[in-house]
Design a protein around this nucleic acid. Structure first.
Lengths: 330, 330
DNA sequence: CTGAAAGCGCTTACAG
DNA sequence: CTGAAAGCGCTTACAG
């Protein structure tokens, strides 16, 4: 037996479908008697409104499309958690589409959203503005997250890498560190690049000696960099890795070499993954679920009024632990 | 300017909407000339089909509803990753709905899915079968994940806690351990209860001395349990914690007390969180993304043919590391 | 090969 | 307060 429709309810309640619709939507132009008859029929039939049909009528779906690249665990779950929290607060559902491969597939993923969602949240780090704009549906509001959007025409949210890096470097300076090393993330990654640039800037601004070593965001690369520096006898008293994984690798290399941390060398990372807390690693917490919440809130707002566009920076937070500060308990 | 519809395309291509529909869907009863005219018009207008309208016509949405409780990071992201992988392979999108609060809200969340999805994947650990059945829409196929489903009437997937626990206990036995401690998870949690029961069973089957201590899945509780056992002078040579967090707490307590691990005491956990690998903790890997994939595959199958219902067990895997075996490298 | 028409399950002016 | 009818944007028998 197929699901009951509004017609079945109308027949049972002996009213028109229009009346059922009004009663169900709580309009006030329905008599009490009719309202009761309708809700009785609804209950008897186990009727649940067909959201798809409703959307088509109303040109409103109460769903938000979320298009993400392949993200690693913590980042993905925190982002979706933030999106979902804000969405469910306003009665929206999230329609998820992961970009497993890049390019071509992005266009398809976005097309598939047409007619299913009221707005789009897009994170596409490998696409440039031009490609993205060609792909994004025109009729539907979209907010970009952490995407390369040089023109800045569209509403977008970015992690404020610069602010995070500055906080780390200033923390180093305040601790009397003079010779900094930055272990950079992979080339082509926008966050990695911003962090490296900001590092140089901040080191200069604080009059600190600084050098950049190339890593790739993996733990092993952090370890390798430090071993290499030690082998070469390079002099340094602080390491800032572009993410926690590499910082942890660096920490291991120093521990193995019996270099005192933070006595001789301070170490800081970026991300604040759970392991960072466990190891007492000073880092920059990105609070990614808050970024998600903000992004969704902005999108919902764009649904009701024009969004002027432009970047909104999401400030991360420096979390000081014992790899930079011996006074910190755990 | 609102988005172009199929009528706009028809007008521009000077054909009927029926013909446009046929051309777009690749039916063969369309002349080449017509087909070209249609695709030209589509391109010129930037037309993208309205998936919502299409769904209503076809009674098929190509979306799967996913209803989950509030899950912690790793578990959530891995599960969704598995679901998404399998879904996108078959051209399905995922419609996400998190159950922030229990009970009442579940019914709403499920109703909201009506007419938006072709099938439902539900994980609702706090609901019993009866409540769930009252809530689940009848017309639409649903697969349950790790849910209390005593009757077993519906298609469901469960983590095979029993098999995982058995593997741990047998590994202990093979290593010559005789006096086991199980740190249990919180009461009322189905996984925790299954693991505790299976522990007792397996210990008996292997003729091992065994005792259960109450924990709550948090690291601190594992630590507290071990401190307490040591203080009381309780004799044990192996600890199996119901999850990795508690195992890690237990490990810390032993390290502080200078108890040799694994020399004097072996420790194993459950879950295989990233930190477990890092600390060399023997554990049971739940491979949760595979569970997700399987669940979705089963649901997709239920869309085309009747699912007989009943449980499918997902076998976890024992990962042996140095907290139980000194011979293991890292 | 193509078009006119009915239908998917709702909502909402319009008329009464 | 209520109903008949048109419409949301598609698909698909039916006829030609």
């Amino acid at each position: 037996m197929p699901d009951a429709t509004i017609r079945d309810v109308a027949r049972l309640a002996q009213v028109s479908v229009a009346t059922v619709s009004r009663a169900l939507n709580g309009l006030d132009n329905v008599s009490d008697l009719t309202r009761t008859r309708v809700s009785d029929a609804v209950r008897e039939l186990g009727y649940v409104p067909h959201a798809g049909a409703r959307s088509l009528s109303l040109s409103r779906t109460n769903a938000i499309g979320v298009v993400l690249p392949d993200l690693h665990g913590e980042f993905f779950s925190e982002l979706v958690r933030g999106l979902d929290r804000e969405a469910s607060r306003s009665g929206y559902l999230l329609l998820l589409s992961n970009l497993h491969r890049g390019g071509e597939q992005a266009a398809l993923a976005l097309s598939a959203m047409r007619g299913r969602v009221d707005g789009l949240l897009v994170m596409a780090p490998h696409l440039r503005e031009a490609e993205l704009s060609a792909t994004l549906p025109s009729g539907i509001p979209a907010v970009l997250i952490n995407t390369r959007d040089e023109r800045g025409g569209r509403p977008a949210l970015h992690l404020d890498n610069r602010a995070g890096v500055r906080a780390v470097v200033e923390h180093f300076a305040a601790g009397g560190r003079k010779h900094l090393v930055h272990i950079a993330g992979p080339r082509g990654n926008i966050d990695a690049e911003e962090r490296a640039e900001a590092f140089v800037e901040a080191a200069k601004a604080n009059g600190l000696d600084h050098v950049i070593a190339q890593g790739d965001f993996e733990e092993e690369s952090g370890e390798a960099v430090v071993k290499d520096l030690l082998a070469k006898g390079h002099r340094f008293d602080a390491i800032f890795a572009a993410n926690d994984n590499m910082a942890i690798g660096a920490l291991q290399a120093l521990n193995e070499a019996r270099v005192d941390v933070p006595g001789k060398v301070a170490i800081a990372g970026f991300d604040d993954i759970p392991l960072a807390r466990h190891l007492g690693l000073t880092t920059v917490s990105v609070r990614i679920s808050e970024l998600g919440e903000r992004a969704l809130a902005r999108l919902l707002n764009a649904l009701v009024e024009e969004d002027a566009g432009g970047d909104e920076l999401h400030a991360p937070e420096l979390v000081i632990r014992r790899t930079t500060d011996p006074k910190v308990a755990k």
